[in-house]
């Protein structure tokens, strides 16, 4: 038996609905027999009547409603159909949910699920990675699970957390990633994981880019270089200590993220490592993000726009030569 990343998300939601009557799911097309654009809620409306609710195409009101419900004891999960559309709800997420605890001492336990990242042919409005925007604003926790196991345990943890959580689930991983079984427990959010050990170079990354980085590490191993790959798991909080400890071992750092480059999570990691671990570095730290253009439609362009194994390997080799 095997379970996909997408099935893990569905199973986590089923468990949450089963275990906690305050949980409900709110989003476009999540209910009825349809079960969501990606089927992440398939069958849940039938199993949990009245708790998996279709909404109008109103991202602002979906999140606003979830905020009000969370303020009064519920644990809503909002599904954005695509991460890209959460831009329409930025006001509610950033200015309402993100400020509420600070202003009033009352936290807002909402979880906003963002189907994130690029897939072939999806174009500028169905491919975005928005973790860096959400991490920039105070008051939010931003999860970026890269494995089936994390997809499952981190979603369960997200709903248990009293603060607003932006849960970035990668669409490419939905079907491509499989595990034998679901875990009973996972690492807590805020702890990065060493996905592969190495002594020559640290690659710090998250979400789908973890798998690109691991593929590159394999290639570099055949060339005699041992790459340590750090899966950050969440970009906020950012486990700087684990990255610093890795850099202490390797002396070299490459950060890889799928979001646009300007002010991204990769820039934040480099800023922190440079400030706190300058003496550990044998070469200037590097980063790789998507290009600073809208995300292209055509597969030939799209695969060159995002960080890919070829580009990651090129950057890594250049860094190893220094």
């Amino acid at each position: 038996m095997s379970i996909t990343y997408l099935e893990a998300i569905r199973e986590a939601q089923a468990k949450l609905l089963r275990d906690n009557e305050d949980v409900f799911i709110y989003g476009q097309d999540v209910g009825g027999t349809f079960g969501g654009a990606f089927k992440a809620t398939k069958g849940l409306a039938k199993e949990f009547p009245g708790r998996v609710l279709n909404t109008p195409i109103s991202e602002d009101a979906m999140v606003g409603t979830a905020i009000g419900a969370a303020m009064h004891g519920m644990r809503p999960i909002v599904e954005m159909q695509f991460a890209d559309f959460s831009s329409t709800a930025l006001n509610q997420i950033l200015n309402n949910a993100g400020t509420h605890y600070w202003r009033t001492d009352v936290p807002i336990p909402i979880t906003v699920r963002l189907p994130s990242g690029g897939t072939k042919g999806s174009g500028p409005f169905h491919s975005q990675s928005m973790e860096s925007i959400y991490a920039h604003y105070p008051g939010l926790i931003v999860m970026t699970p890269a494995t089936v196991e994390d997809a499952y345990t981190m979603l369960i943890e997200a709903v248990a957390i009293d603060d607003p959580v932006i849960y970035c689930e990668h669409k490419y991983l939905y079907y491509h990633l499989k595990a034998e079984k679901l875990p009973t427990e996972g690492l807590p959010t805020g702890k990065a994981r060493i996905a592969r050990e190495g002594r020559d170079l640290t690659v710090a990354t998250y979400s789908a880019m973890l798998h690109e980085a691991l593929a590159v590490a394999e290639q570099l191993a055949s060339e005699g270089f041992e790459t340590e790959v750090v899966d950050l798991r969440s970009v906020k909080p950012l486990d700087t200590n684990t990255v610093l400890a890795s850099v202490a071992r390797t002396g070299r750092l490459l950060c890889v993220g799928e979001s646009f480059p300007w002010g991204s999570a990769t820039a934040e990691i480099i800023a922190r490592v440079t400030a706190e671990g300058f003496h550990l570095l044998d070469a200037a730290p590097q980063r790789l993000n998507a290009k600073d253009t809208p995300i292209p439609y055509h597969p030939n362009l799209w695969s060159a726009h995002r960080p890919n194994t070829k580009e990651i390997a090129r950057k890594a080799r250049a860094l190893l030569r220094e």
């Binding site: 009101a61 606003g64 009000g68 419900a69 969370a70 303020m71 009064h72 519920m74 200015n95």
Partner: peptide, 20 residues
């Protein structure tokens, strides 16, 4: 300060009361 935002928040609070 962002006007209109509190309407849906009120709706959500009412839904919570109904759920409970």
């Amino acid at each position: 300060s962002h006007l209109g935002a509190m309407i849906s928040v009120t709706v959500g609070a009412l839904m919570a009361k109904r759920f409970r």
